[in-house]
Design a protein around this nucleic acid. Structure first.
Ligand code: NAD
Ligand code: NAD
Lengths: 253, 253
DNA sequence: ATGCCTTTGTGAACGCGTGCACAAAGATTG
DNA sequence: CAATCTTTGTGCACGCGTTCACAAAGGCAT
């Protein structure tokens, strides 16, 4: 997975487990597809398959929202779409500000899937004076100096950070000071935020490294050799080598 | 979090829990920063703070790799960097292919942080004939027709999918058929893959929806009204309304 | 109306992940 | 060399999340 909330003991918000909340968008997407095909009802089994989860899990997830199914029949698609949308807060409009309009920020700004679910790109912000005024995806880029005003004026409560890592914490602080209480961070930086502010991170590099780990494991199951590059001699803090020969520099464990 | 492996019972690969694997890149990043500042050793407390985790958790994570610390002193930074790199398989080169060179694919191709950890963009692939040959980030885009050969020739085992959702499964199938065994999927599609293939997904839309959920909860704690838009009348599958008045269409659950 | 058949909703068991708290280990100082 | 102090490594308990399995519910056919 790419993210994780800032470490809090998984506060079961209003009885809905965090893990369930994370799956609701998945169900919603599958339900929307069914809705477009005018499918009236769906069983937990079918929907679970479409969403790529276990059917028992799906039923338990829905049970947290209430009893919206009909035994022997399944779930009413339209009704469930509405209930989940409402639960996720998608029946209202969420103005979003993107800070750092480089490669990634511009790609996000151009992304159409944003607006599809109540998320509206309300402002693009960058520190580069040369970019100020230049439209990206039809929206003029504004300068960081006005960040506070921009956030306030547009009632932005969700901010997206796509600046270089070094600037992320500072940008985060400014966003929070301006009233933002939810942040989606693409910079590889551990953000520190006050209580009450949610941070989720998307870290491409971490994803690839996790894949590499499993990839290596898959490949290394038979050919256990292929150890390239000599490992550096372990330096004990005092500069000496480990007292009793230490442990082998390359050990399989 | 943004992702999640294709649902497998969290196979504890060679004794290292999946949750630990997901944190190793985080530690590695913090350690690399310390290394650049020529810090020789670091305590679990310091490193945990830098990585944004609990120190006990960090120590337990490292204990799965072996006993690399020195009591009373801490961990040797360089040594730990090497051990984690090796464990994650970053001591070798991973050629990566990106399929779907649009907004997002191009941004990823241009991203420098890719190459920093052994990941090398070996090929860019797109279905648009007009793009074939055009260089993006210095790498010429190749046509989907040659996908199989491109994957084989470059020994690519990790593929990144940034096509529109409708094409994702098909592209995935072709990648897998060509020998790819790890996939990072940015398209909002549930991919189905054979046993032995790892899929991780990055879904921006889901992240925003999770943030919106908590945002709504934060805002709605005092002002519980603000229910906009009349909920659709619940349609019982047979077209009639529920027999006994059913449950209220809008219930606080 | 009655019985059958499908599917939900959930009780219960289990396993993983987390965090506390502390004993053991080793460095350091006198 | 002995005492002290720091920090690791981990046993243990707890809570969350997942999954199984099944009784209850409700539609539908007869
Ligand atoms: N491009 C990718 O595919 C990718 C992938 C993973 C992670 N990331 C991360 O996303 C972030 C952005 O990547 P990118 O490739 O778009 O970089 P980029 O250099 O193309 O864009 C960064 C933008 O941020 C702006 N900026 C710098 N400091 C700022 C500040 N203090 N306030 C506001 N704006 C500021 C710059 O002017 C620039 O336009 C980086 O942290 C990168 O590590 C990018
Ligand atoms: N842009 C974003 O910020 C963003 C954010 C979240 C998710 N996504 C997802 O990422 C994907 C790409 O988004 P985008 O904005 O870059 O879209 P895009 O339309 O700009 O790019 C898609 C590219 O894929 C190519 N393509 C189409 N079918 C193909 C096929 N069968 N084989 C190979 N290439 C093919 C197209 O030619 C195009 O170049 C989409 O699924 C989108 O939902 C994008």
């Amino acid at each position: 997975m790419a993210t994780g909330r800032t470490h809090r003991p998984a506060t079961r918000s209003r009885g809905i487990p965090e893990a369930t909340v994370a799956r609701l968008p998945l169900y919603l997407r599958a339900l929307t597809a069914l809705s477009e095909r005018s499918v009236p009802t769906v069983s937990s089994e079918e929907l679970a398959t479409a969403a790529g989860v276990n059917s028992a899990k799906l039923r338990k997830d829905f049970s947290y929202l209430g009893s919206y199914g009909t035994r022997g029949v399944g779930y009413d698609v339209e009704y469930l779409v509405y209930q989940i949308s409402r639960e996720l807060g998608l029946t209202q409009d969420w103005p979003v500000a993107i800070v750092g309009i480089g490669n990634l920020g511009a790609a996000l700004a151009n992304y159409g899937g944003f607006a599809s679910r109540g998320f509206r790109v309300a402002a693009l912000i960058d520190a580069d004076p040369a970019m100020a005024g230049t439209p990206v995806a039809g929206i003029p880029v504004q300068h960081t100096d006005d960040l506070d005003r921009i956030i306030s004026d547009n009632g932005v409560s969700i901010g997206v950070i796509t600046t270089p890592p070094g600037a992320a914490q500072q940008v985060c602080d400014r966003l929070v000071a301006a009233g933002v209480t939810s942040i989606l961070n693409f910079a590889p930086t551990v953000l520190s935020v006050p209580e009450g502010v949610d941070v989720r991170k998307v870290d491409l590099s971490i994803e690839l490294q996790i894949l590499a780990f499993h990839e290596q494991r898959k490949a290394g199951e038979d050919a256990s050799g292929a150890d390239e590059g000599a490992p550096p001699m372990r330096a004990t803090p005092n500069g000496r080598k480990g007292p009793d020969g230490d442990m082998p520099a390359v050990m399989p464990a």
